[in-house]
Nucleic acid binder design. Sequence first.
DNA 1: CCAAAAGTGTTGGTAGTACACCCATGA
DNA 2: TCATGGGTGTACTACCAACACTTTTGG
Lengths: 229, 229
Amino acid sequence: MLQPSIHLSVDAVIFGYDADEGISVLLIKRNLGPFKGWWALPGGLVKPNESLEHAVRRELKEEAGIEVGYMEQLYTFGEPGRDPRNRAVTVAYYGLVRPKNFRLVAQTDADDAKWFNIKVLPKLAFDHRNIIEAAITRLRGKLAYEPIGFELLEPKFPFSDLEKLYMALLDKELDRRNFKKKIMAYGFLEETKELKKQVGAGRPAALFRFNKKRYEELMKRGYNFDLFY
Amino acid sequence: MLQPSIHLSVDAVIFGYDADEGISVLLIKRNLGPFKGWWALPGGLVKPNESLEHAVRRELKEEAGIEVGYMEQLYTFGEPGRDPRNRAVTVAYYGLVRPKNFRLVAQTDADDAKWFNIKVLPKLAFDHRNIIEAAITRLRGKLAYEPIGFELLEPKFPFSDLEKLYMALLDKELDRRNFKKKIMAYGFLEETKELKKQVGAGRPAALFRFNKKRYEELMKRGYNFDLFY
DNA sequence: CCAAAAGTGTTGGTAGTACACCCATGA
DNA sequence: TCATGGGTGTACTACCAACACTTTTGG
């Protein structure tokens, strides 16, 4: 049976976090095809012999010079008509990075690559706004039972960074005391002996570190996280 | 850019439930191609102008004569090598039906269509065992915060059917009194005035009904279900 | 000594869990 | 009258949520 002309691509919703900036998404400016000059998610066609995840990582490298640690499949978007040229099905992924680790480098398909705060997104090509919204929803849901947020923080961080991250992601206020009690009770965070070098006034903060080994042990025992608040 | 020969298909993991039989999955026996004579998930190639979900529903109808109410996208499987013939990417869906509502009818690609208890699956074609396992995991996870199980019950059912369903899905014992207290507290179940006609000995059970309207109101208000136990 | 951020405990309410006996029917 | 499945309440515990003052530093 012949199956003509269904184009299969991947797209990536890459979230970055900065304590001042909040949550942002990586977008590239299209320099060809339909929606030329519009902002879009990084992504592109899957090659015949690479895995889907490989395709995403390759495109991210090519289009923005970024390498992502945590990444996960989000959803596959395939409505006829989502691409004006032809039938196009795209497998969307989402991932988390620390923006400061990368200098964005636009190449190939992209004029430009930039971080946009999720609260002020520009006009987006194709159905990419939908895709981003789906990714935000999924990210929030996932946070409720898995502590993936650590991917967005420095290896050692003051506890207040974690608080701010969760408040930004969940978009609501959290009580510092209760939040700390809860997180510390899980036991996958450890306090280092270091203190944060001062930036301005205020008491210097102790630095914490995510203990991945401890976390994985807990997971294996079928531990049920419930990080919502 | 040309993209030769990536074949895009859909596959469906359809769960059925019967109070005596437990949870089962719909499989079809392949009558052609590789894995001829093996059991496989219903599914097939996506046509150029149909949506992914439409493709799944069409295939289910063609291959087994089944129409599914609740259905959801599960995951997209696309490792090179998962189909010995060529590069094949499949978007998997999962759905829930009441097996008694259908007489299975094998047609087109299928020699035969049959329900298999999830605890005694036969050898499966391609990576379909993985897909089924992923679907079971997802179904269990989903149950934790959304009462989708009702799709598997008759419109009116004795409360014990719901208990048994949850015990089968979660594969563990539940305390009848606590389970009922919890479910009833949500308020989306209503007791009808009818009693179940007797089958054997025992007190006749009151029949309950899922109140979808009430459920949707609760959802809109951002209600957080927590059905685990 | 003032401003800024970090650190820390107690209490009341609610929801989860454990647990055992009576009721209505058919055979 | 016995066997089968249906129906129900209480008490303990553990976790969640609300809440405000002290400490350490820089300026």
